[in-house]
Structure formats: C-alpha cells, structure tokens
Nucleic acid binder design. Structure first.
Length: 300
DNA sequence: CGACTTTGACCCGCGC
DNA sequence: GCGCGGGTCAAAGTCG
C-alpha cells in the first residue's frame, strides 16, 4: 500500500482531530468499487473508506480531489465505504455514488459562496465529536441491519434533499454510538450511513462471523461488520459499522492491528488476493460481475 | 407493557 | 442580534 494511502488509513489525524483529506477518485469503474480505497468526502475531512475497492479494484489511483465542502455531511472525521448489506439489493456503480455525494454537497461546487468554504467551524473548541465512519449503500432500506440494536431518536429534513435524515442511537446501555442515515438527494437508492462513536459492547447479534484481530498477525481477513478503533483507545471493542461484510485488517508495514480511528486499510492486492479467493460472505452479497478479481490485475 | 417510531420543539453553532 | 440549519429531546403514538 502506498504511503499516502496508508497515512490516510491511519488517520493522518491533525491537531484538530480531523483526518487529512485524501484523494477522491471520481473515476470509479462501473463494475468495481472504485479505484481509491479511501477518499475524502467533499474535501471536508470526511473520508470515504471503501474496503471493497481493495477487493475488486486495488489500483490506487490519484484521482482528482473532490474538493467541495460538505454541508449535508458532518465536518469531523468520517470514513465512508460502500459495502453491500444483507438488506441491500445490490451495490452498484460507485462512481454514481461519488457523483451523487457531490450532488448532496448541495452543488456547493457551483456555489462558490463563503458559506460553502469548508466551514472550519469553531476554532478547536468545537464539541468533541466521536470518530465517524460512514459508508454508502445501495439499498431500498434506510436502516440497515448491522447486528446492533438502534433506536431512532430523531429525523430531520435535509436541506436541498427530498429525503430526511434519520438519527439512531445504540440501545445498549452505556453505549453512546450514534448512527445517521440519509439518502442521496439525487440518488434515492443510495443510503449514506454515518456511525459516530464506538460500541462499548459486542454486537448482540453476531452477523456471520466477527472480526478478530490476531495479535502478531498483520493479516486478518474475516467476515465481519467492519472495524473501527478509536484514536486514543487501544482497540477495546470491535466497532461494527454496518452490515456484515468482508473486512480486511492488514497493515503491511505494521505488525500490529490498527489502533487508530480510521478503519483498517485495505490489503495490498497481491498478498491477500489469494486469501480472498473464497470471498465468503462477499460472494453471497456481491454479484459476480462486480467482484473484479484482483487476481486479474496481478496476472494482467 | 415494553420497545420502538414519529414529530414538533428546543438548543446550539455559525454566517451575515 | 437574527436567521438558518444541524442535532437532540421528549411526549405521544404504534406495534408485537
């Protein structure tokens, strides 16, 4: 994995608690999940993390940065990916999603007003926000079943979007994880789910395997719901963002599992491709045509 | 009856 | 200070 990407994965957290913007590829192949494993959402510090990309299209390209601020999306560190889910009918072109997100960005790119100039919001005293992890999903269902129990505590109309944004909170006592769900304004089939915080408990419903970071191992591939570690917490619990999915936890240059917020970086194409031959859950969820074998890349 | 959703009100931060 | 928008609260309603 290239350093830049790794840095991104590792968070590249700045003093403000944000993660440095990373390249956003708008060159997502229609049959894959994009050529960038992670990208900043609208240049607002919101990273879209796409583990799938590592599985299907590991060509990490340096694409044009989508540099418009997000007004409908949070301003703090967020990572977004686009895993399929049990509830989702399919996961299609990521490029559309990216474009859509851009749209959601209130067309800020075409509205060069001061208000869209990436609100630095509060110098630094802004209420400390939990790390965020967001992902996009093609689904008709807003509230995807990720193994945790959520309670909806609010819903708001989203500016410039016909679709409301729903707010959920983990119902487990003592767990303050929140979840925000909204649809892209120009792509109602795409659901953007944003997780905030970290579960202080295990998923009450272990969906098809759970992630287990193997100490000493720099490669851990399991079907899971995802993984997120809090910046200053030594990976206490598994953070299980959305739907059960194939997550790869690997740091080719780091023998230890990630302990920082950004989700585990996708694996290098070759080293893990073989392990991924059996896509496990993936093959259940992702149409064959969408599962662009990394092997092809290698051999090619 | 408990768990959950709905929904209007409220609070807060930010830009003007 | 005011208005706007995001986020949260909490009472009422719904459902199994």
């Amino acid at each position: 994995m290239d350093k830049k990407l790794e840095d991104t994965m590792m968070g590249s957290e700045n003093s403000a608690g944000k993660y440095s913007p990373v390249g956003f590829s708008d060159d997502f192949p229609a049959t894959s999940f994009g050529s960038s494993n992670s990208f900043d959402l609208l240049g607002s510090g919101i990273d879209f993390y796409n583990p799938l990309s590592s599985l299907f299209d590991l060509v990490s390209t340096t694409a044009p940065l989508l540099s418009s601020p997000a007004s409908t999306v949070p301003e703090s560190s967020e990572v977004v990916n686009a895993p399929p889910t049990p509830n989702s009918s399919s996961v299609s072109s990521y490029s559309n999603d990216a474009a859509a997100i851009d749209e959601v960005d209130k067309n800020n790119t075409e509205k060069p007003s001061s208000s869209n100039v990436l609100k630095p919001k509060k110098k630094n005293q802004k209420k400390q926000r939990e790390p965020r992890f967001a992902f996009m999903t093609k689904s008709d269902i807003d509230h995807l079943d990720d193994g945790y129990r959520w309670r909806k505590y609010g819903q708001k109309a989203v500016k410039n979007s016909p679709y409301p944004r729903s707010y959920y909170r983990c119902t487990t006592v003592g767990c303050g994880v929140k979840k925000r769900v909204e649809r892209l304004s120009n792509d109602h089939s795409t659901v953007v789910t944003t997780y905030e915080g970290q579960h202080t408990h295990q998923s009450p419903i272990m969906p098809r395997g759970s992630i287990r970071v193997i100490p000493g191992s720099n490669l851990d591939i399991t079907t899971t719901t995802g993984l997120l570690f809090q910046p200053n917490t030594p990976q206490p619990f598994m953070y299980s963002p959305p739907p059960p999915f194939l997550t790869i936890n690997s740091l080719s240059t780091n023998p230890r599992p990630p302990s920082s917020f950004p989700p585990p970086p996708p694996p290098p194409p070759s080293s893990q491709a073989s392990v991924l031959r059996d896509h496990g859950l993936l093959q259940d969820l992702v149409p064959l045509q969408m599962r662009k074998e990394p092997k092809d890349e290698e051999n090619g």
